[in-house]
Simulated scan of single mutants.
Amino acid sequence: MAEKLNVELREDFGKGAARRLRVEGRVPAVLYGHGQDPVHLSLPGHETALAARNPNALLELALADGTTHLALIKEIQRHPLKRSLAHLDLIIVRKGEKVEVDIPVVLTGEPVAPAIAVVDAQTLTLSVDALNVPEQIEISVEGAEDGLQLFAGDVTLPGDAELVTDAELLVVAVQIPRVEEEPSEDEEAAEGEQAEGGAEESSEQE
């Protein structure tokens, strides 16, 4: 289901124009793809921020002249401190075509204690239907034991998605955390004596 946004064409460009838009509570964006010239847009800030919580959200962009475009978010730029939306790159998509997108990996369940699950690949690149992009890839580690390794080729993909990422890429590893032992009092005392001995030898040589 596409998120509908009422958008406006932008005629002023540059950092100053973009800054003014953001002050007005809007987000500057550029739309491109399918051989069309880039179209500069102004998006409603609040609605766009809600839609952008899903980085692969499908957007229906409605212009004042009645035309609409279906698009996916290609890149998000955020304010370095406020983390608010600063600019969006949008790519036009059409029904029936496939696109390559990075889908977040999310773990469910808990492995057998004291083992923990470590995510080595935060996303997997999939080729999917442009109008049916999954929000995430869920991998269950419920009851998994120490030593389990899951590679990209082992992951069950949603729908008719196809794996683009290397199938041999390690995605999740279940392991028992290693705890470094603190030195005992005897070891600390021995290290202290060695340090003192070295200092005395240095003094004698001088």
Rank of each mutant, 00 (worst) to 15 (best):
residue 163 L to S: 06
residue 23 V to T: 11
residue 165 T to M: 05
residue 132 N to D: 15
residue 96 G to P: 01
residue 33 G to F: 08
residue 102 D to N: 12
residue 203 S to L: 14
residue 121 A to G: 10
residue 35 G to Y: 13
residue 74 K to R: 07
residue 195 A to E: 15
residue 141 V to S: 10
residue 64 A to W: 01
residue 192 G to Q: 12
residue 101 V to P: 00
residue 136 Q to T: 11
residue 60 E to S: 09
residue 23 V to D: 08
residue 164 V to L: 04
residue 70 L to H: 03
residue 185 E to D: 15
residue 170 L to T: 08
residue 65 D to V: 07
residue 115 A to G: 09
residue 80 P to G: 09
residue 180 E to M: 12
residue 166 D to L: 07
residue 164 V to Y: 00
residue 51 A to Q: 02
residue 63 L to S: 03
residue 69 H to P: 01
residue 124 L to K: 05
residue 79 H to E: 11
residue 57 A to N: 04
residue 192 G to D: 11
residue 190 A to I: 10
residue 55 P to N: 09
residue 100 E to P: 01
residue 103 I to E: 06
residue 123 T to A: 10
residue 135 E to Y: 14
residue 37 D to S: 12
residue 89 D to L: 05
residue 9 L to Y: 08
residue 33 G to I: 07
residue 114 P to T: 13
residue 157 L to N: 12
residue 40 H to V: 10
residue 115 A to K: 03
residue 166 D to W: 11
residue 59 L to Q: 02
residue 155 V to H: 03
residue 62 A to M: 08
residue 29 A to H: 04
residue 135 E to S: 13
residue 139 I to D: 11
residue 193 E to Q: 14
residue 37 D to Y: 01
residue 171 V to Y: 08
residue 10 R to V: 13
residue 104 P to I: 09
residue 132 N to P: 02
residue 34 H to R: 04
residue 58 L to Q: 02
residue 78 R to F: 05
residue 12 D to H: 15
residue 63 L to G: 03
residue 63 L to F: 13
residue 190 A to N: 07
residue 135 E to K: 15
residue 64 A to R: 00
residue 145 E to F: 10
residue 127 S to Y: 09
residue 119 V to Q: 15
residue 119 V to I: 15
residue 39 V to C: 05
residue 177 P to H: 03
residue 170 L to D: 04
residue 39 V to E: 05
residue 84 S to Q: 13
residue 179 V to W: 02
residue 77 Q to S: 09
residue 89 D to H: 06
residue 116 I to N: 03
residue 6 N to I: 06
residue 52 A to D: 08
residue 72 L to D: 00
residue 32 Y to N: 07
residue 110 E to F: 10
residue 31 L to E: 04
residue 174 V to G: 00
residue 154 D to R: 07
residue 176 I to K: 09
residue 102 D to K: 04
residue 148 L to G: 10
